[in-house]
Each structure stands twice: as C-alpha cells, then as structure tokens.
Design a protein around this nucleic acid. Structure first.
Lengths: 147, 147
DNA sequence: CACCAAAATGATATTGGTTATCAAGTACAC
DNA sequence: GTGTACTTGATAACCAATATCATTTTGGTG
C-alpha cells in the first residue's frame, strides 16, 4: 500500500509538472511509515533525525502537496495546530477525541454520511467534504468506572 | 432573550467572583446584538466603534469568559481564526459552510446526534461535545444550475 | 557530458492571530 | 472614604505558518 501511495504521488507530481526530489521522497516515506496523526513539527523532527539537512519549510510545503495529491488529510484540531493523517482513497473517517489524554479513535458511519447528504440537499448545498469530531473521555480517562 | 443571557452571565460572574465592568457589558451587548458568526477582530471593531477605549485584549478575554459561561461557542474554522456564535442553552447545532462565499447555515439533526452517542458508546467514550461541519457550495455559488 | 532555465530547497525574516506582562485604573467590601 | 484584589489597555512576546531569496538541484537539450 505504501508503494501505491508513492505511485499516486508520482502521478500527481507528473500531472503538475513537479520535479522528483530526495526531500519529498523522504518526507513521504516518513509520513507513510506512521499511522498516527502527526503535526508538521513532529513530522519535521522525524524527518530531521534521519536527514538533518531537510528544513521545516520543505516539510510544510510537501505536506500541503500530499494533501493536494489526496494522500494526506489536514486536520484542524482545537489548539490550532495542523495535523496530518493518511487519506485512504475514496474513504473517509471521523474522529473520537479524548479530551483527557488526546487519544484519537477513527470511525466511519454510512448512515451519518447519508444523513449529511440529505441535510445538505435540503439547504441546496453540494457537499465536497466534511469534518466530524466527537470530544469526550476515552475508557481509560474515564477511570474504568462506567457512567 | 438578551436579558436572559445577561442574567446568565451575571450568574456565572457571581459564581466565579468576577467583577462587573462596563467593558464586559459592552462586549456582551455587541455580541448579543448580532446573529452572525463573528471573529474576535470583527467583534473588536464593532465594540471599538461605539467605545473606542476598549482594547482588543479585553475582547479576547471577555469572549473566552462568555464561552466558559456557556453563552458563546468558539468555532475553529479552517483558516485557524476563531469565531464565536451564540450558544443556546442546552441546544446544539452544526454548520453547512460554503467554500465559495463563506456563508454559514446552521442545522441540527437528532438522528445524527443519537448515532454519535451510539458510536461513542461502542468505543467506550463519554461524549461532552462535538463539532460537525459540512463543506461545499451554497445554492448561489453553485450558480443556480442544479447538479 | 556540459549547459541552461525552471523548480526546489533551506535559512531567515515576516506575518497574523492569540496570549502574557505589567503599570495604571476600577469595583466592591469594609 | 479606604484598601486591595480584580480589570484594563498598551505593548511585547509567542507560535504556527508563510514569504523571501540566494543557492542548489532537476531534467531536458545539444
């Protein structure tokens, strides 16, 4: 699947007339090698540890590129810092976010998606994307005591 | 209803040991007098037009206060700038956001809310709040042509 | 391979929204 | 009225993100 993503990015790069660079390869590799929701800073630190020469401006630029290419999705969390997650082609998922420890659980629900389309339709909107985040406490932060 | 909000804020202020100031009254008035989703800057400009002496730091502080008091709700839009909307006691609504002109339409859907609770329950989460934004084009920006 | 124009990089400066600082002002209990 | 803790407003500081720009690299061409 990593190869697919790389091909997808190469295809996008070709279409856009972008050049193939070592830095972009490295950043894409690092991004694809993790399953977490990474901030640009975290990504930059990971990249830097193996390739100290790469500057953070390039990481920012490349992540924007990956988002445009449909490989990464940018999340705007409450603190204002951007985080990126993998974008599985055609798929979409939403988030359960623990306000205690920051843990993020992904989920998807077809029924909700359909309802969203219905609602949008009633207002004459054509939806291109959405964001749904549920905030609360995860089982661990609730302390094991149900309720 | 404006008086109710003011009473609610006074109650919160009393509970927190906060003092009653002219500035907070003015900012609350300005906020309650509008039905739009205002950025802090817009709010500041409105406040300033009638009370030039009030600084923006006070507007920021007061809006945080109103959010804590449950009177305002802070929205984190994609550009990172915070906007505030009215928080109707106990009620909750979500947003249809036009990516063309920035128009925001509010809606609520009980079925979705219930589904959210179900999903959270399946993962052991207890939900305290959520955010759901649907992005797309409003009827006007779609150009009138359905599709 | 050498050359060149365009694109990309990386160090740095800059921006823009938000928060912290702190002296001066104000509310409120006494 | 007095005292003091809370507020305010001007300013500086902060931080993520973007712009700038000289230098380097890519990828085509001869």
């Amino acid at each position: 699947m990593i190869l697919e993503k790389k091909k997808a990015f190469n295809a996008y790069a070709a279409k856009q007339g972008l050049r193939s660079t070592r830095q972009r390869d490295v950043i894409l590799d690092v991004f694809l090698a993790t399953r977490q929701h990474l901030s640009v800073e975290e990504l930059y630190l990971k990249v830097k540890s193996s390739h100290p020469g790469i500057g953070f401006a390039t990481v920012y630029r490349t992540m924007k590129l990956l988002a445009e290419a449909g490989i990464a999705r940018e999340l705007t969390l409450k603190n204002g810092q951007a985080r990126y997650e993998h974008q599985l082609a055609g798929e979409h998922h939403d988030h359960l976010i623990c306000t205690g420890c920051g843990a993020i659980v992904e989920f998807e629900d077809e029924t909700i998606e359909k309802l969203q389309q219905e609602i949008a339709g009633r207002h004459g909107f054509s939806i291109t994307s959405h964001r749904m985040d549920l905030f609360g406490l995860c089982p661990i932060c609730r302390g094991g005591t149900a309720g």
